[in-house]
């Protein structure tokens, strides 16, 4: 099925963003709000450019944590889903636990993880895994379950074994569901890393944010807040490209 975006679909949200930017300019330009509380867009841009080397160093660190955390999440989610798909009783036993992990507030366990695992990369990666694992695992599980019984019958009639059924039916069928979960996870991923760094660390955008907040550099803070959303958007864009590459048939 082809999904064409019309021009208004693109223009409308762009217009809203533009409106917010204009409002920001106007509010800061007229000094309705004091400059130290809400820095103007130009000041934010200047702060960003001036501190680029430091910011980039921290950004690299945050991205590295996110990629490692996400990678581990996907690997664990994949194997957990395969096992749960194979053994219904394991799925019954562990699925509720998975749901419970989703109700734990990330911000509350981050300090505990720091307490347990120190100020290094471990507590950050663990937090990302806790947050990102679930949507990906559920994506795989739903995907595996979406295989039609008649399709399995077809492969059986060809003499296929379980691995071949997995390779030719379950895996490709799970891809769209996996990507749906992956996108949700990835939108939490960078934010989780930043929160975790904020609450205890030596490197990363969270640490930087915390520092500039202590020194009242709100222009730098705003710069990094925008950077974090841009990074999250970029991650989602990369995933979309990957999705197109792996599932070319979806555009037909």
């Amino acid at each position: 099925m082809k999904k064409q975006k019309s021009i208004t679909d693109i223009l409308l949200p762009l217009g809203v963003f533009a409106l917010i930017a204009v409002l920001w300019f106007v509010i800061t330009g007229t000094e309705v709000v004091p400059g130290f509380l809400l820095p103007s867009p130009t000041k934010v841009a200047i702060a960003f450019v001036k501190d680029i080397p430091t910011i980039m160093g921290h950004t690299g660190y945050t991205i590295a944590e996110s990629v490692i955390g996400m990678g581990i999440s996907i690997v664990i989610a994949f194997f957990a889903a395969v096992i749960m798909d194979k053994f219904a009783c394991i799925k019954k036993a562990f699925y509720p636990l998975l749901v419970v992990t989703q109700t734990i507030p990330a911000i509350a366990i981050a300090p505990i993880l720091v307490l347990w695992f120190g100020f290094g990369i471990a507590p950050k990666v663990i937090l990302i895994v806790i947050v990102c694992f679930f949507p990906v695992a559920v994506g795989f599980l739903d995907g595996f379950a979406s295989v039609d019984a008649d399709e399995i019958k077809l492969l059986c009639s060809m003499g296929a074994n379980n691995i071949q059924i997995f390779r030719h039916l379950k895996l490709p069928r799970s891809l769209p569901h996996f990507f749906a979960g992956f996108k949700v996870s990835s939108s939490y991923c960078i934010v989780s890393a930043v929160i975790s760094e904020w609450l205890g660390g030596t490197n990363g955008l969270g640490v930087y944010l915390n520092r500039v907040r202590s020194s009242y550099d709100y222009d730098k803070m705003f710069a990094v807040i925008i950077l974090v959303s841009v990074l999250s958007l970029m991650v989602m864009a990369v995933i979309s490209v990957l999705e197109k590459k792996l599932m070319p048939y979806r555009d037909k």
């Binding site: 039609d148 008649d150 399709e151 077809l154 069928r173």
Partner: peptide, 17 residues
């Protein structure tokens, strides 16, 4: 199974291949 071929009621062409 595997000795004779079987075309079911639905064509069951896999959409991703």
């Amino acid at each position: 199974p595997g000795h004779i071929s079987y075309m079911q009621q639905k064509d069951l062409l896999l959409p991703y291949y």
